[in-house]
Design a protein around this nucleic acid. Structure first.
Lengths: 189, 189
DNA sequence: ACCCTGACCCTAGCATCGCTAGACAATCTA
DNA sequence: TAGATTGTCTAGCGATGCTAGGGTCAGGGT
């Protein structure tokens, strides 16, 4: 029955519309400004329609985050291709800098998405795989541990920088130092 | 005029009462649960009293954060005394783990407190000084940069761990690896 | 062709939030 | 003692997330 399919297609379209609107609003004015009323007005539907697509506001933010994971994977892959570890670091930090609200939805705002325990979003697993591959040559066996540590360091740099808690200049120095620490092979017994 | 002084003393006492109540509530139920009404009820005054002490809710959270900075400095100093870099790392991560709401107020929740630009809270400067001293022997001149990086890495580990985004076991491995990367002298030209 | 049924969406409203205005009481000054 | 000042509370405003209930319109069966 094509009528049924057409309906579902339209619903899916509207879901994307809502998610896109939320993301735009968040990037433009921050997550505090993303309210159900503003969102409803932006997609030109009434508030309750949002709840026929998503359980609540947090679920909308999580949908935005999932979009982010996919884009992050692409950006990281491209970064590694350009310049290995340093390219990965630059790509990660650029992503966080250029999409601050998106980054918050992915990694800062509390959310029901947990990574290391329970099921992991496939798109995020892919992003982490880029880390694993890039770090493996220097890991001396402990690939996952080094990948987690490298990721954590970048996350720390990204969030503290965003919060104006690091000297704005010296960014380059910090990144270079980090990459050197990870890349320069030392005795890791 | 001692009457005047007595008044001021009482006001100061009540300020501390409010801050302590906010901190307790946040640690017990998270910052979302810290509302002006619950806070007012807990200190047994009406809501407007809060605003005669603090500009708004964020200012109360900032006051809690300032308490945290002082305690963090003490904890870090003790950690360094015990085991240098590793002690510092352990103390920092333990602090974040044991006082998650306090840590959020200090470093995660957006706040008007900025560190690296403009004026810095003295208590936080003291905490960073511990980082500087602990890291200096390995910095090869770039002490501040290495301190910022070490701090960022710990911050990343702390927040991602708190968000269940790292494998709960392997914590020890990550910390040891980080400390080794920073401490083992390599060629840093 | 007609009616009925069900899916869809909107208006209206609830409880709660941060914050403030204005009235009331208690205390100090002269 | 009378007036002024200081302090506190009650009540309320606008905005929040979310939901209940009713109305409208299209699709399907006879």
């Amino acid at each position: 029955m094509p009528a049924q399919q057409r309906k579902e297609k339209a619903r899916e379209e509207r879901s994307r519309l809502i998610v896109d609107a939320a993301r735009e609003l968040a990037e433009a004015e921050g997550w505090d400004a993303v309210t159900t009323r503003k969102l409803a007005e932006k997609v030109e539907y009434s508030q309750p329609v949002l709840y026929s697509h998503f359980k609540n506001m947090d679920a909308i933010a999580s949908a935005v985050a999932l979009q982010g994971f996919e884009e992050l994977t692409v950006a990281l892959t491209e970064g590694v291709r350009r310049a290995k570890l340093r390219g990965l670091a630059d790509a990660y930090l650029a992503f966080a800098r250029e999409h601050p609200a998106l980054y918050q939805a992915m990694f800062v705002r509390r959310s029901e998405l947990t990574f290391a325990v329970g099921e992991i979003p496939a798109s995020l697993r892919a992003a982490f795989a880029v880390f694993l591959a890039a770090v493996d040559p220097y890991a001396d066996g402990a690939t996952e541990t080094l990948a987690e540590l490298f990721w954590s360091s970048l996350h720390g740099l990204a969030t503290l920088q965003a919060g104006k808690r690091l000297r704005p200049d010296h960014h380059e120095n910090r990144v270079e130092l980090l990459v050197n620490l990870v890349a320069v092979p030392t005795d890791r017994t």
